[in-house]
Design a protein around this nucleic acid. Sequence first.
DNA 1: GGTAGTTTGTAAACTCCACAGCGATTTTGA
DNA 2: TCAAAATCGCTGTGGAGTTTACAAACTACC
Lengths: 390, 390
Amino acid sequence: MTDQATTGADLSRLRELNSLTVVRALRDQPPTTVTELAGLTGLSRPGVDVIAQGLVASGWADVVEPGASSTVGRPARRYRFRATAGYVIGIDIGAHKILALLADLDGNLSHTVRRSVDADADPSARLAALDEIVAVTLAESGKSADEIWAVTIGVTGPVDASGRTSLFTPLPGWRTVDLAAHLSDRFTCPILVENDCKLAALAERWQGAADDADDIVFLLAGMRTGASLIIDGVLRRGFAGAAGEIGALKAVRWLAAPSHLQKCPGVPATVSPDDAAAWVFNAARAGNRDARTAVNRYVKDLAVGTAALVLALDPQVVVLGGGFSRSADLVLDPLRRELRKLCLRVPDVRASTLGADGVALGALRLALDEVDRRLFSVGLSAPVAPRRDV
Amino acid sequence: MTDQATTGADLSRLRELNSLTVVRALRDQPPTTVTELAGLTGLSRPGVDVIAQGLVASGWADVVEPGASSTVGRPARRYRFRATAGYVIGIDIGAHKILALLADLDGNLSHTVRRSVDADADPSARLAALDEIVAVTLAESGKSADEIWAVTIGVTGPVDASGRTSLFTPLPGWRTVDLAAHLSDRFTCPILVENDCKLAALAERWQGAADDADDIVFLLAGMRTGASLIIDGVLRRGFAGAAGEIGALKAVRWLAAPSHLQKCPGVPATVSPDDAAAWVFNAARAGNRDARTAVNRYVKDLAVGTAALVLALDPQVVVLGGGFSRSADLVLDPLRRELRKLCLRVPDVRASTLGADGVALGALRLALDEVDRRLFSVGLSAPVAPRRDV
DNA sequence: GGTAGTTTGTAAACTCCACAGCGATTTTGA
DNA sequence: TCAAAATCGCTGTGGAGTTTACAAACTACC
């Protein structure tokens, strides 16, 4: 706060700011000519030219020499944001699998590594698998650890400010694990730990079903039920990171809701508890009466908590994610119907388009946001990996 | 969005930015010397000097010539933010009264005008009273309409983007009233209309019980029950302005909750329905058994909706406002107890410190925020009333 | 009462940045 | 081959902030 006041701007800072706006313009454009950049930024052409050359020298931009030109006049040199100056990693530690994604600064996926993990593996086994998957990701992509600018890990359970899931977590023995500390000797860059449901919401806003919305309620509908909130375009964690945990209210029957599906009469004994829900959805789709009522009961329970969130926040969109979003065809319509009964204004209700990869994608997005925050918000630093602050 | 890109900074813009930081530093400081300002802003002393003189010339600052100095050295000239360059008005249109406040740009109250209105007055009578109170406020303070830089009006019921309470409102015949349009021929400055409960929340964060918090749930506890949300320091309206309306959920018994008090056995027939609640609180304080159970039942109902909001948002503070906050001594403790039962993490629960003036104060705050947004965010304009954009 | 020390106010010189304008260069099309 | 069009690169101009230097004003102390 006291530091906020010292914003006196020097001439060098002016250059910094202008470099920043040029980089920003470059980032969401295909390779661009100086004249185009001048138009985009409002700066003069010679001015942009100097800045662009500076960006190339410092490593933020690449030059694309003109090829065969189609327009009249001398073909222009083009500049391109050097998205490969750094990379970020997003990891999803689920109950059954660990998924790691590696992407450049534009968010272009360059490597995907997946490993399955035993559902009741103890923390040390899970951490070993994490270590291995990180090593493999770096090795396969040929990147060294100091080319990684941020790492985000998604875990189940609410994550507090220190990056721990101390409140509760379904993973056995996971409450005292400090993931950031565990990876801190491998990476010097920021390491973020975040709740999986929150990350999935970020992903849906980035590349998924809600890429047009700023106010989103994301529902994790699966064997666990959860929710997370994006308000005014920003993921909201609440004061202690427990925002969205409306399922803890007993009147909201989210804890027991999936049991409507599991305990549906008619599920064959050969179907494992984990697959029961899928069986019921299929049966409902085929017209099975018991299965249909089970689904309806499930949705009715799901809708109560959803309505509470909708009334509390008045979002533009509700996104149905989680494992059950594969059966969105059966869930969306009754969910809309219930919400219409319960809410003042019914938001758009949409199904996730990202499925099981959403968490890891959201982890990427959060890592990219962290890089943005560190390098592109105050001023333009040199294109090197930011250091984690203690 | 496309306009956002054109942020190329000129040298004149640099001056604008530095002027802005100096004004910002001046605003939350007593009269300040150039040397102090240089320290605060990080600019050089001569640099600040030119800027300060420019601010005086344009009317943003005043010079305070040095008086008797107590320290060694030549006594310094001091500069002061000219808070009287403009004024804002905050108005609360309640069921029984209309309250108008006039304050300068620092938020210093300079005039208060109050008029009572018949509870079932029709819209035209209420609008006439509004017109009169506006005229009186201007006349008594000796200000002309073009010295007013923003006006905010607080009304009951959710307010949509157009400033109308089309969804519903307890005031008779009020749904089609367009307050901003009604006042638009009197003022050229921005005219904002906002829900009273939301404004009261703003006030509590500004000068009230939650001035240390960024994540706040404000409860309006009275004959109506409502809530509003401040998240990350910003009042959240939701996509269509209906955020906080959790009371619309039937499982949340907010609509019926006050009837526990009104229908408490033992209320004398001589007590009017409006005063019944106050009677019950007094009786409970005196030890009346029926009154105590009525209060407890009321709090239990209030707590369900509050818990839903707390679980959804994980706020730092819950502020109890509205008419019943006068009886916070009876409400706070049982409310905390209930929340402890229902929530994962229990926030601070505090009573409003502003009482019935909160809405008008919040209206002032919103008007000041609007002025800030227009004059102090992009660059520093001349110190004249901003024009309402169509 | 005078002088040293300290702080403020102001002017000058300097540096740096963006801009405007001009000519040179390179390509297309007639 | 020449004109038109667009880009590239250079130079001079003006403005903003900084540093440096010095005069002015005040306190403290001898």
